[in-house]
């Protein structure tokens, strides 16, 4: 256990200034992942506590929903507008973790939580993500829960967030601030493929902070869902999950967005399946055709080959659920 310097930020600007002045410092929000990581030996030396900053508003606006980075997961999932107009978000959160954790965990922290790969989470096992160059023990080890998309020889760990998958399907954008910068990026660009630098999960630069997440209103968002398959009924990460959003007009699919969790090193868009749906009639045949393409390009590991078929079936079930009455 090493000494950690703890700073409590008084304002957003102060937090960003602290981050700029303390290279290597990390933000701590709900702390539900950060504290686990530090117990598991993945330790920052400087923590900047942002949990008290007023970045927790959930604001449904005319064209979009803006969620402060520090909004608690439970508050987002319980918000009546979210439940009505962005059901995939509410469902993804309701299927995440436990009530206690959802009461503490924040939206920003959820997106930036680190992988659940068991090798990463043990202080001294070979893992390129935790200790670059030490090797990836999961590739030829216990990889039942690992990724089939976006893997590299250096890392095959999944991104664990449920919410991120739903946000990807809803084409969210992420508002980011640095000490003297501000930018907006599509959520797909927030996450980095492991490549040969698996230690970097996100595209955030040093000292950058997520301030909010935005999703637009749309017919597709209103007809969206999140379906999670897991090894126990609750309090467990996805083996496979699917977020789906369909805009249907006169029985025809105008636009379709599909994203999957538990399968990719980053939240994974199912582009081939989306294409199969666009313009098709919203009927079982189209869903089956889309499902058939869901695992295109997947590269199974020794223990997770079943995820290909499970993903296809989950896609199909999610789509059927969106059009059932």
């Amino acid at each position: 256990m090493q000494q950690v310097a703890y700073h409590r930020a008084a304002s957003e600007d102060a937090a960003l200034a602290l981050a700029a002045n303390h290279p290597g410092a990390m933000f701590i929000a709900g702390g539900t992942d950060m504290l686990q990581l530090s117990k598991q030996g993945v330790v920052p030396t400087q923590l900047i506590d942002i949990s008290r900053l007023p970045l927790d508003r959930i604001e449904p606006r005319a064209g979009a929903l803006r969620i402060g980075a520090l909004a608690r997961l439970a508050d987002v999932a319980d918000h009546p507008d979210v439940r009505r107009d962005w059901p995939a978000l509410a469902q993804a959160i309701a299927a995440s973790a436990s009530p206690q954790i959802r009461n503490l965990a924040t939206v920003g922290g959820n997106l930036l939580q680190r992988t659940r790969c068991g090798y990463f989470r043990s202080a001294d096992l070979p893992c390129n993500k935790r200790e670059p160059g030490s090797g990836c023990a999961a590739r030829d080890g216990e990889n039942r829960l690992h990724a089939i998309f976006g893997t590299s020889p250096h890392c095959v760990a999944t991104h664990a967030s449920d919410l991120a998958v739903a946000l990807l399907a809803l084409q969210a954008s992420v508002h980011v601030r640095g000490h003297d910068s501000a930018r907006v990026l599509p959520i797909a660009e927030l996450f980095r493929l492991p490549g040969d630098t698996p230690q970097r999960d996100s595209a955030l630069g040093a000292g950058e902070m997520i301030v909010s997440v935005e999703v637009s209103r749309s017919a597709a968002a209103r007809r969206s869902c999140y379906l999670k398959v897991r090894d126990r009924a609750s309090f467990e990460f996805a083996v496979v999950s699917v977020a789906a959003a369909l805009e249907i007009e006169d029985g025809v699919i105008r636009s379709a967005r599909l994203a999957a969790g538990g399968v990719g090193t980053v939240p994974w868009r199912l582009v081939a399946s989306e294409r199969a749906l666009a313009g098709a009639r919203a009927e079982p045949a189209a869903f089956a055709a889309a499902a058939a393409r869901a695992a295109d390009g997947a590269q199974p590991l020794s223990q997770n080959g079943f995820k290909l078929e499970l993903l296809r079936r989950t896609v199909r079930r999610a789509l059927e659920g969106l059009t059932d009455a």
Binding site: G118, Y119, S122, L125, P126, A137, D140, G141, E142
Partner: peptide
């Protein structure tokens, strides 16, 4: 779950 290459438990 024991990793056979390392002889280590990976879900402790």
């Amino acid at each position: 779950v024991m990793d056979k290459n390392l002889g280590r438990i990976v879900n402790d």
